[in-house]
Amino acid sequence: MTASAASNQLGAAVGAHAFAAIGPAGVVAVRQFVAAAVLLPMARPNLRRFTRAQWWPTIALGLVFATMNLSLYMAIDRIGLGLAVTLEVLGPLGVALAGSRTRRDVLFVLVAAVGVYVLVLPGPSSDYLGVGLGLLAAGCWAAYILLNRLVGARLPGLQAPAVATAMSATLYVPVAVLLVLHGKLTGMAVLYAIGAGVFCSVVPYAVDVIALRRVPARLFGLAMSVHPVLAALAGLVVLGEELAPHHWAGILLVVTANALAVTCSKWSGSPTVAPEM
């Protein structure tokens, strides 16, 4: 599980190296192509047998993939990897606490809120657009979890994620075409984006399948709490992003709130596997 999380954040850091050449949308486009090329042969979905009840959540999942990845990468481009991923983790936290009315869970929400405030320290120089994009990614992750429960009950294996990823990749075809026409989809930028696809999609999927055979879903969800820490470390090592003490304090508070919420909540839905498709 730790290897999966580390691969995910390493891939995001590698992909960030291509932002200057092809932009966040270009990196997401290549990543989606890589993910679709891997998942479709694995799942081999029979589209002719899909019913309406199977199609609509799959289509919604595809739109979530497309929005989640772009918003996260745009947030990374503006506020850095560690901060963006910490804000994104609020999505699973919200799902874990949804519908809860206990004082304990209210405390977890307050801890997370304080963490976000300490992390951002709102002021004239704050990048509110970057923060907003990180929160949009969090909302998409929450939607992914809920849709994943639904399609998991209606379609076997990885059929729904495979089709949803292919749909998301199709939406990014115009981006790839424009980059090709402008001669930008070449060289190291493409290699960085492909690396992001391998580290963020291919490796986590393979590792997560193995991990989920050995650990409960709740423990897997708890492992998601390590993502912000690994993202901050990947940003430091790969991108040279140095975080201030208040950033680390905010990350610690959000991670603590998420870990406690997943551990103590009665939620027992599908694990939040592979968020960054």
Rank of each mutant, 00 (worst) to 15 (best):
P124A: 13
A60Y: 06
P45L: 05
S7E: 00
Q54I: 01
M224P: 00
V89Y: 09
C264V: 11
L230R: 01
G235I: 13
V254K: 03
A176W: 02
V120C: 04
W267C: 01
R48I: 05
G197F: 00
G82Y: 08
I79W: 04
S125D: 13
A223T: 13
V198Q: 10
Y73T: 02
R52D: 06
L212T: 08
S270Q: 09
A274F: 10
R218V: 14
G157M: 07
I59M: 11
T86R: 03
P174T: 10
G123Y: 08
Q54L: 02
L178N: 12
M277D: 00
L135D: 04
L133Y: 09
N46V: 12
G195Y: 05
A160I: 12
A231E: 05
L40C: 03
S7Y: 09
L219I: 13
A143I: 01
W267R: 14
A259W: 06
A5H: 06
A274Q: 11
P57K: 02
A3G: 13
H247I: 10
A96M: 13
A98D: 04
G62I: 03
A75L: 11
L129S: 08
T186G: 03
G157I: 06
A25V: 11
A142Q: 07
V85W: 07
G115D: 12
A169N: 02
A112S: 12
R213F: 07
T58K: 00
V89E: 05
Y172Q: 04
G134W: 09
L233I: 15
T86V: 11
E241R: 04
A12E: 04
A189R: 01
A232G: 15
L39F: 15
S225L: 10
D77H: 11
T272N: 14
A176H: 05
Y205A: 03
R31V: 10
A16K: 04
L135M: 13
A16I: 04
K266G: 14
